[in-house]
């Protein structure tokens, strides 16, 4: 398939993040995997808006060909939302550690019984 190289990297990042989420037992590593998955999505949005030769979507510079500004706005929204959800996730991890004394999900599961 004649996909751009960046799209393959998007797939690799998405898969790596998902693998990390599904196989890791440390809650903090799961948060890291979630961040990598989100980064793959952001790279997809930004690459989708670009074709070689484009310039940044700023007027007043005399540029005619520019990248699509709509996916850029979506990317910006996604970055900030990802940061605030990560903050909430990490707060829950701290509270879970306070309650169970560990961040390993297997130990937490055995202590829940």
């Amino acid at each position: 398939m004649a996909l751009p190289v960046a799209y393959w990297v998007v797939l690799i990042l998405f898969g790596m993040g998902l693998y990390c989420i599904l196989t890791e037992r440390n809650l903090i590593k799961i948060a890291v995997g979630l961040n990598i998955m989100e980064a793959g999505l952001l790279l997809f949005l930004v690459r989708m808006a670009y074709s070689p030769g484009d310039r940044a979507p700023l007027l007043g510079t005399g540029v005619i060909r520019m990248a699509d500004p709509i996916p850029h706005a979506l990317t910006l929204t996604a970055i900030v939302i990802a940061a605030s959800t990560t903050a909430l996730l990490l707060s829950f991890i701290i509270q879970i550690h306070r309650h169970y004394g560990t961040v390993d999900i297997d130990e937490i599961r055995s202590k829940m019984k």
């Binding site: 979507p57 700023l58 007027l59 007043g60 850029h72 910006l76 929204t77």
Partner: peptide, 9 residues
């Protein structure tokens, strides 16, 4: 606005 991303947002 000159910055189109801000214009969209």
């Amino acid at each position: 606005a000159l910055n189109l991303v801000s214009a969209v947002l």
